[in-house]
Design a protein around this nucleic acid. Structure first.
Lengths: 113, 113
DNA sequence: TACCACTACACAGTAACGCTGAGTACCGGA
DNA sequence: TCCGGTACTCAGCGTTACTGTGTAGTGGTA
């Protein structure tokens, strides 16, 4: 991530990245290339393209998104992903787990160190 | 985690659990069984014993902790882990990555949804 | 004495996920 | 004609948490 890529960042992204993408999709539909670009702009500079596409395939197979092929003026057709009801449930679940973790860590940060 | 174990929680723990354990060790030395018990008390009710021991072996092999065998009155000898200088560096790095993630997610939470 | 619960750790095998690296294909401009 | 930007796919790898099992020491109890 940024200049500091490190083993840690990669491991910590696991599961979180899915929540991030679902959150992005909750604002409006998007396609892979666009999502990758947006995330890189927002600080995930070293995010691999393949990682995003693989993630999108996973959430599609789990039925969290609806997919539509849309022609592009600039290249091959785009696969536009739209968050559906199942996806919104999953997203709620994500935020619940995320809140749990932040609470635990905030507390640890106070006690320890 | 808690009643809802789920795939998500498991994936989100990756990398984070190491930071949690290092933070615990930054307050005082501890041994595996104790760490597992403390984490379970603090809400990680479904945390597997094997997970913690495997993690401890990893951070020992990376040289983040010093290890000492201490006899126990209640069972086999304990392996007491103490955070060393390298471990404290790693912990700092962890908090840096964690802060980055929380900032990104806080912002997403505002914009999206 | 035999058994059981609790303490304490180790280890092999599995699933999930992000990364690497390569490939395919379409478009426009130099 | 070739190059860069757009857009997606895929095989293979490393890391991590989980599952399940095994080993072993202690104390209590029937």
């Amino acid at each position: 991530m940024g200049a500091t890529v490190g083993r840690q960042s990669t491991e910590m992204l696991k599961g979180v990245l899915e929540g991030i993408v679902l959150t992005l999709l909750s604002t409006r539909p998007a396609y892979g290339y666009e999502i990758t670009a947006r995330l890189r702009d927002q600080g995930f500079t070293d995010l691999a393209e393949g990682t995003v596409y693989a993630l999108l395939i996973r959430i599609e197979q789990r039925g969290l998104v609806d997919v539509e092929k849309v022609p592009s003026e600039k290249g091959p057709p785009r696969k536009v992903f739209t968050l559906n009801a199942r996806g919104r449930e999953d997203l709620t679940e994500f935020w619940r787990t995320w809140s749990f973790l932040t609470e635990r860590l905030d507390q640890l940060r106070e006690d320890g160190a």
